[in-house]
């Protein structure tokens, strides 16, 4: 097969609207993104960036699809590592579903990050990052505090 994919699914005690806001609010992403934040106007075709707290660009791309509070697709390329940047654009898809049959609030979040090349070092890198970021996000939404410190 000629592509590389990372998939992560988690369940969070929240609503689809709050989760959408947590993924798209610059100030909120700054709380759980381990020393970085996301910025965009989140409209299809608009630029998107992931920047370190000091303003340096980590990753950049554009919004491919935005269907709040259900589905978000970002065209995404690393910008700070020459090796990863050379791999070109990946596609990251977020799907948000209220869990059917749950009495209280529970949302299923699926993150699928894919690039059209085998054995991608970029996908290898995000495979380590997503579990940290999504663990932090889940804790922040459920308990009000993150569990992992910002990177030095």
């Amino acid at each position: 097969m000629s592509n590389s994919t990372f998939i992560y699914v988690t369940y969070i005690k929240t609503t689809p609207e709050r989760l959408w806001s947590a993924l798209t609010s610059k100030d909120f992403t700054r709380q759980y993104w381990l020393g970085a934040y996301c910025e965009s106007d989140w409209k299809p075709g608009s630029p998107w960036k992931l920047a370190f707290d000091d303003g340096r660009i980590a990753d950049a791309g554009e919004i491919v699809e935005a269907d709040p509070p259900r589905r978000l697709v970002i065209k995404w390329r690393n910008e700070w590592s020459p090796e990863l940047k050379a791999e070109g654009y990946s596609l990251c898809t977020f799907e948000i579903e209220a869990v059917p049959g749950a009495d209280a609030e529970a949302v299923k979040l699926s993150v699928l990050h894919n690039i059209d090349r085998p054995q991608s070092a970029f996908i290898q890198a995000v495979s380590g990052g997503w579990p940290r970021i999504l663990s932090n996000l889940k804790s922040l939404l459920e308990t009000g505090t993150v569990v992992l410190p910002k990177k030095a």
């Binding site: 369940y11 969070i12 869990v99 569990v147």
Partner: peptide, 12 residues
Amino acid sequence: SFLENGQILDIP
């Protein structure tokens, strides 16, 4: 959730 909040997720 159980270890951090003492509550489990309400997933059927």
